[in-house]
Design a protein around this nucleic acid. Structure first.
Lengths: 383, 383
DNA sequence: CGACTAATGATGTGCCGCATCGAAAGTTTG
DNA sequence: CAAACTTTCGATGCGGCACATCATTAGTCG
């Protein structure tokens, strides 16, 4: 786009092929006439293009089908099974692998619990196992995967290496991309988990209508992911959104208000303390309410910094605590109203714990899209 | 780009016309053969395209010219005089109007002092006068202007209306765009001054190599402009970069450290106090050094919030105080090192007080570019 | 003045998309 | 059961665009 490139006549075919594919994706099977209308081309021209796409494997035919009157039309739809992508969430407690087709429909998933204390080698082993299991269940081989995205905690630099501090033991400097390159020849992307969750919320979650989104991960950890003008922003060194590193913003210590809330019975498991606090707060427990109020106050300072910097349309609240969004959203909105010039909409995440892996899928698909659409959709069968 | 559009055969000509123009702009006059090489088209094809562009007025011929051997080639260059744009800086003390051709070469400028206390009506009158003078000097009529960008203080919403708080008296809610629409039929853009200065620094200033830039205005006022992935980011409500509104960030009061530095002689004019402080600091005045240290400390907190949010490649320090960048850059870098994960490069602005108007020019030109390039460069003579 | 060089202009070819029209494949109706 | 109707399918001819090739032209150099 930026560098001038002479356009051959064949470029036209490429352009129109891409247009037709764009018009077909995510839609029910369509007739050539419908596609011609949608794309704004003539019927014969569209027909030729569609034939080419069928020959290349991008499009498949859905024979006749229920029509009312006239000669029944052949129906075509995007061949989502032409390729598949993997989305991997390397979490603290679990590895989650999602396998989807080119439309983003999840066809298989595999979840593997991991000890929070596991070292990088063990964790990467678990990733391998989960991917193997997932592919096996889907009866697919690694060569059939067109792209993989891995979500990890902590910032990721442009080479796909984790950098700086991460909550996982010994995880700094690890390169999941290099590790997976041994098994996959396709592009392997590595991305921060908060950023992927943000992508997921825009794709299928609470912010599908917005192009400027601040996603705030509110849980045992606190983090953020930014989508600006519809695109995930990584920052020059991949550390965009790491406002929590500013000591004046008490994101590191914020969850402690809840974790260390006075009155938590010692019988409660460490992982369930937050749930206890939220439940108690709803029941009227003063200490619990205070803990949450303090937490939200700390959370709001960092969020306000993000909001003032970016002026987004929506703030999406995700992470473990977002299950109790009813207790957080309103006070958070109040605090932001106090701190910000213009308060954006604040919404609770509508995706569960799968959001990181979902976002990973979307990033992988986006990567393919940008490649294919700029190259004019070469035949996928040759891969 | 996003909605599928069938590509007619004529689209090819459009594409190639755009490519050729792209290859010509900012370059010395070129022969058809050179252009063909640059664009990657055949010579005859390029020739036809260039002829069309000449006929439309986009390109002009530079007859023969010094060549060495062989038949002398006709040389063509982009006809920058085909249209012009205006960049207007509505400052506190001055109105500055720049008139440039389509290459961004300033052909005329007009500067008009304004009382800081002038009300909006008087200020808009001054804008009118300055524009009139500038056009008169260039012997041009308003219809020959293809786009105007106006830089103002304070956030600007998407309709080009100033919003919220601004340092100019009564300036909130004013719409310079509506005011100018009476004289110009071309697009009139209104933008925040810090944002425009950021654009200027990337265009001709200290950050020409960077795509992720945080511009910090350090002067009597403090503000910021953000460029992410090479594009100016306005935010959903036009208030991106307004981190100074966060009270925890002491940007509002930061300049007071310098303005109220102990020891400033009462004989010094209010506008020259900062200069006095910087001069004294260089001479070893303790109070002055302390004032600057405190100022930088406050400045750094807000800057750190921006840097941590966006992780830019470069921070450009602009505004009046940047003339004394030698006293600010190093301590600022130290503070950011303490506060941030990854410290970006910190550079002093290399543009003077014209930066806002320059950025306004660039924004106007960018607006034209995006329009023309997507429409395939229709003949400009018809305007 | 002739040889060399590089741009110019003209011709023919192939590809692409469009408009048009007859043939085909169904449904509806009497 | 057959004729009328509706809609898709397939083929043909047309015009536009870029390309390759080659003769022509306009300079410089020896």
């Amino acid at each position: 786009m930026t560098n001038p490139a002479g356009a051959d006549v064949s470029k036209l075919r490429e352009l129109n092929s891409v247009s037709v594919v764009r018009a077909m994706r995510g839609q029910p099977p369509a007739t050539v006439t419908e596609l011609a209308d949608r794309v704004g081309m003539s019927r014969p021209g569209t027909d030729v293009v569609v034939r080419g796409l069928v020959a290349d494997g991008w499009v498949k035919v859905v024979e006749p089908d229920g029509s009312t009157v006239g000669r029944p039309a052949r129906r075509y739809c995007f061949n989502a099974e032409a390729g598949h992508v993997l989305g991997v969430d390397v979490g603290v407690h679990k590895i989650l692998v999602l396998l989807s087709d080119l439309e983003g429909h999840v066809v298989h998933s595999h979840r593997l619990p991991v000890e929070p204390s596991a070292d990088p080698a063990a964790r990467l082993d678990a990733v391998d196992t989960a991917i193997t299991q997932c592919l096996k269940a889907a009866k697919m081989r690694p060569t059939q995967i067109w792209a993989v995205t891995v979500g990890v905690t902590g910032p990721v630099d442009s080479t796909g290496r984790t950098t700086l501090f991460t909550p996982l033991p010994g995880w700094a400097g690890v390169s999941p991309a290099e590790h997976l390159a041994a098994r996959f020849t396709c592009p392997i992307l590595v991305e921060n988990d908060c950023k992927l969750a943000a992508v997921a919320e825009r794709w299928q979650g609470a912010a599908q209508d917005a192009d400027d989104i601040v996603y705030v991960l509110a849980g045992i950890r606190t983090g953020a992911g930014l989508i600006i003008d519809g695109t995930l922003r990584r920052g020059f060194g991949g550390a965009a959104g790491e406002i929590g590193a500013l000591k004046a913003v008490r994101w590191d210590s914020a969850p402690e208000h809840i974790e260390n809330c006075p009155g938590i019975p010692s019988s409660i498991h460490a992982d369930d303390r937050a749930a206890w606090v939220f439940t108690e707060a709803r029941a009227g427990n003063r200490d619990a309410s205070t803990a949450i109020r303090r937490y939200v106050k700390d959370l709001a300072v960092g969020t306000a910094a993000l909001v003032l910097t970016l002026d987004p349309q929506v703030v999406v609240l995700g992470g473990g605590f977002s299950r109790s969004a009813d207790l957080i959203l309103d006070p958070l909105a109040r605090e932001l109203g106090r701190l910000c010039l213009r308060v954006p909409e604040i919404r609770a995440s509508s995706l569960g714990a799968d959001s990181v892996a979902l976002g990973a899928l979307r990033v992988a698909l986006d990567h393919l899209d940008s490649q294919l659409f700029t190259d004019g959709m070469p035949a996928p069968l040759t891969r």
